[in-house]
Amino acid sequence: MNAHRSSTVVRAEEVVFHPFSLPGFTGGTSAAFLNTDVATAPFVALLRLEPGAVLAKHYHPKAIEAVYVLEGEMINAGVALAKGSMVSHGPGVAHGPHRTETGCTLMFIQYPGVGPDDSVFID
C-alpha cells in the first residue's frame, strides 16, 4: 500500500456538464470530466448526447476503453444498447459510430494515460 497516494472522490453535486465536441461529433454533446489525473487512476468522463447526436467511427491508439450506458439508449455500430449495457475494446480497435435517437448519458473509462483528445476518427 502506498500511504502517499489518496483516492479520487467526486461527489454527485460536483459533477458539472459543459458543451463538448471533437471533430467527429455531430449534434448536441456535453461532458463532465470526473478524473483527468491519469497518474493516479483511469481517465473517466460522462458524456451526454442529445437526440440525434453521433460520434463517428474511431479508435484510440493507446487506450483500453469501456463505455457504460447510464441513461437512455446508445446505438453502437447499428446495435442498440439500453441503460446498463457496456461495450469495451483495446487500443487500436475501431468502434462506433455511436449515436442515439432518444438521447443518452455514457460513462467513458480509458486507461492508461489518455485524455479526451485521444481519438482518431475514421471517414
Rank of each mutant, 00 (worst) to 15 (best):
P116Q: 11
E14G: 12
A12Q: 13
P19V: 01
F108L: 12
L106M: 11
L106T: 02
R11D: 05
M107H: 03
E73P: 07
G27E: 02
L22N: 06
V44A: 13
R11S: 14
L47H: 04
T40Y: 02
E101M: 03
A66R: 03
D118Y: 04
Y59N: 10
H89M: 13
V120H: 11
S119H: 02
M86E: 12
H98G: 08
T105Q: 12
V9N: 11
T29M: 15
G103M: 04
P42T: 05
G90R: 06
S88N: 13
F20M: 11
A56D: 14
S30M: 03
P116S: 13
V9P: 09
N2G: 12
S30I: 01
P91W: 07
M1Y: 09
A63S: 14
A41K: 04
H18T: 14
C104M: 02
F17K: 00
T26K: 12
Y111M: 12
F108M: 01
S7L: 13
G27N: 04
Q110L: 14
K83T: 15
S85Y: 03
G78E: 08
M74H: 03
E73G: 02
V79T: 15
H18G: 01
G72R: 05
A63M: 09
G96C: 07
V9W: 01
A56F: 02
L106H: 03
H58A: 06
N35Y: 06
L47E: 10
G24S: 06
T105D: 00
N35D: 08
P51E: 10
A94Y: 02
A32M: 11
L34N: 05
K83Q: 15
I75Q: 08
V15M: 10
I64G: 10
V93K: 12
F43P: 00
N35R: 05
R5P: 00
T26L: 06
F20E: 07
E71L: 08
Q110Y: 00
M74N: 04
G96R: 05
N35W: 04
H4Q: 14
R11I: 01
E65V: 09
V9D: 08
H4V: 11
V67K: 01
G72C: 03
E50P: 08
P112S: 07
P61H: 10
A41C: 07
R99L: 11
P23A: 07
E50R: 11
F121L: 08
M107R: 11
Y59Q: 04
A77T: 09
R99Q: 14
L47V: 15
M86A: 15
G96K: 07
L49E: 00
P61E: 13
A56T: 03
